[in-house]
Simulated scan of single mutants.
Amino acid sequence: MRTRSVFLAVALAVSLGACAAPDEAPKVAAAAAVKINDGPDQNRIVPARVDAAAALVPERIRATGKLTIGVGAAGSGFPPLAFTATDNKTLIGNEPDIAVAVAGVLGLEPQLANTSWEGLFIGLDSGRYDLGASNITVTEQRKQKYDFVSYRKDDLAFEVKKGSALKVAAPKDVAGKKVAVGSGTNQEKILVEWSKQDVANGLPAVDIKYYQTNQATYLALGSGQIDAYLGPNPTAAYHVATAGQTEIAGTCSGAGSALPGLIALTTKKDNGLVQALKAALDELIRSGAYARILGRWNLTAEAVTAGEVNPPGLPIEGK
């Protein structure tokens, strides 16, 4: 087993309801060094079955004794949320840890499946996966097809080359800038809306760029082909800490406004599983296992106090 010592950036410990550049963010003490175990032996927290929660699982799933879980970590993945261990096959990170713990409470054997972002939703639609645990943001459009139980705040970050003068706190700050974003993601929708606001205010549109892989995005950022990359705050802060070549220019809610964005366990709508997922998450929060899992990946600042079934979703359309 190999461990990696990293000093996770202050950005990972900052959770904001609206956008703010670093100089405007609340002052937070820097996090201490955290040892990240990226080997295949994860020694995950697997709670004992809780009968009251397990009884809520639909019979068709209970009969299999398994919970199939789609995790969108194809390619290089998204540390510290979901990525492959040093054996290049074992799924690790906060998202699989939460899903495995939920399965434990429900008395089910977790079956983790590494898939693409698109494949994750295809799998949920077809019933191949009972559950999606992959940094999925709750949106009003997605609620038409899926049921959700929120388990983490959705914060985003603008990552820039180290030494960049760019600070981002509002749409005007990226007017005319070249900003990369993942296609089909909630952050893409936010960036498109910001660009529209800039144009409406007489400013240049955001020059939105797309790359197939994280590696290609970071090569473009390092070479100056783009000014910034908008992605999940935990992933950006992890990269800042481990690569040492970039920094956070600003963070914001996944809503792109004061409306809080939420990350949720996701299941096919009306398949009967959502109340069991809520009961399991609430048990993890009550027992302290939830806090220990988030703390392991230095995501404590994004914790919620209770899971919500189908909470208000972002008005921005998601994929």
Rank of each mutant, 00 (worst) to 15 (best):
G231A: 12
E302C: 00
R62E: 11
T84V: 15
I92D: 07
K27Q: 12
D207P: 04
G163V: 02
A157G: 08
F121T: 11
E193I: 00
Q275A: 15
V50P: 00
T266W: 04
A18P: 00
G295P: 01
E24W: 02
A85Y: 09
A29Q: 08
S116G: 14
A216P: 00
Y210M: 08
K35I: 13
P204Q: 05
L230S: 06
R296N: 13
G222L: 10
L299A: 00
A53P: 00
T266Q: 14
L314H: 04
K145L: 10
I136G: 00
G182T: 09
V174T: 05
G123K: 03
S164P: 06
P204W: 05
Y129C: 06
T137P: 00
I98F: 09
T137M: 14
E59P: 01
L106F: 13
E140H: 08
L230D: 04
G244A: 05
K172F: 03
V192T: 13
A157E: 13
L106Q: 03
I248H: 07
T266P: 12
A165Y: 02
D198L: 10
K145E: 03
P79E: 13
A85K: 04
L203K: 12
G250M: 07
A243F: 13
Y210D: 01
E247P: 02
V34W: 08
S287V: 00
L91Q: 08
T300F: 12
R142Y: 03
T217M: 09
T84Q: 03
T266I: 03
K278A: 12
G70C: 09
V199T: 14
D38K: 04
A228R: 02
G176C: 07
V199N: 05
H239V: 15
N37R: 05
P171S: 06
S287H: 00
G132T: 06
A280W: 07
G123S: 02
A13D: 14
T305G: 08
D198W: 09
P311H: 07
V28A: 09
P260I: 01
G182Y: 08
L273N: 10
A54V: 09
V181D: 04
N94Y: 13
A243C: 04
L191T: 03
C252H: 09
C252E: 11
A180W: 04
D125C: 01
A54N: 10
T90Q: 00
D173A: 04
A101E: 11
A55V: 07
T84D: 01
Y290W: 11
P315A: 13
G70A: 12
I92Y: 08
V100C: 14
A237E: 05
N298H: 11
Q245R: 15
L112H: 06
I92Q: 03
V14E: 13
A29C: 02
V309G: 03
R2E: 14
A241M: 07
D51R: 01
S183C: 06
T86H: 11
